[in-house]
Design a protein around this nucleic acid. Structure first.
Lengths: 163, 163
DNA sequence: CGTCATTTAGTTGTGCGCAATTTAATTGTG
DNA sequence: CACAATTAAATTGCGCACAACTAAATGACG
């Protein structure tokens, strides 16, 4: 361990920096997407769902959730809105009646053409080089992995091997 | 311009990576904070507000919002919950009756002692060196600045050209 | 075969984020 | 002083994220 000695007091301020910065960046992204996606009639999470469907084709709700780290509590109402908008269809799977398969309608498929313009506008807005974006993405993914792992270890007991 | 020629098609996938990674990291952070903050009875946004108050003392709602990039639509109900929890007090300013000053109660001030342990647990969970966290923070802040600026320029017109 | 655990969606409830609107106080201007 | 413009909070409405729970279908096992 290369733990640099830092007083809790200082740490509390450092902490605010990183968690807050990440939060702010995420919301700033969201704000820009809101503007750009408005003309497509999509919210940012809806756009993410459409990206998944455009890339992978028809998928059960479960699979969509795995791609986006979202559960049915979030996806069910969201997909219902996409269905109302005429972009997707939902049908019970014949093979497994528990599963609901989400598929693109013609309109949903067609929307992809208009969505192709979105990423360039977003990327341009960041002012970052592609390489830097990629580097940032790598670090963030590593961070996410570490945080998820930690969240699983935190709740049960404060030490190794209780219960 | 060092624009690497990339097809819109590829771009659409790259795009999913960066926006999605940031979103995922933010939610992963949120999840870990949820676990760690549970014993303090705070949500993550409430924790951010407390951090601001601990650092700056009593502040009008407006100032709290400036520190956190949040407006009264978010802060009003949040502060009401903190008030109900007995952590803060809200009083109309005598000098400017429009303004509501948010102040810590004794209980709110005391909570800081217990909160001092939080950052270390979070930082440990990331598995990142302090230097790397700081580097990441810097990049994210730059990103946020660029995105905010872009969001202000986007809405008026689609720019030179299209439509 | 029947029973029970697991899996998959959906529902409910709470809280956040933000746009749009409302209300009240303050400031600026003639 | 009167009156319009601005400012600060609060409220309303919508959508997302997540925990907790329900309902229905499937799979495992004696």
């Amino acid at each position: 361990m290369t733990t640099t000695p830092v007083r809790d007091d200082d740490f509390l301020r450092l902490d605010q920096q990183i968690c807050f910065s990440l939060n702010a960046a995420s919301r700033a992204f969201n704000g820009l997407y809101r503007v750009v996606l408005k003309e497509l009639g999509l919210t940012y999470p809806q756009y993410l769902v459409m990206l998944v469907l455009w890339e992978h084709g028809d998928l059960p709700v479960k699979k969509v959730g795995e791609h986006l780290r979202l559960d049915s509590g979030t996806l069910s109402p969201l997909l219902k809105r996409l269905e109302t908008a005429g972009l997707v269809r939902r049908e019970r799977s014949a093979l497994d009646e528990r599963s609901v398969v989400v598929g693109l309608t013609g309109e949903g498929t067609a929307l992809r053409e208009r969505a192709l313009r979105v990423p360039r506008r977003i990327a341009a807005a960041t002012g970052f080089e592609l390489a830097e974006i990629d580097d940032l993405r790598t670090r963030l993914d590593r961070l996410t992995g570490a945080l998820d792992a930690a969240a699983l270890e935190e709740p049960p007991g404060p030490g190794p091997g209780s219960e």
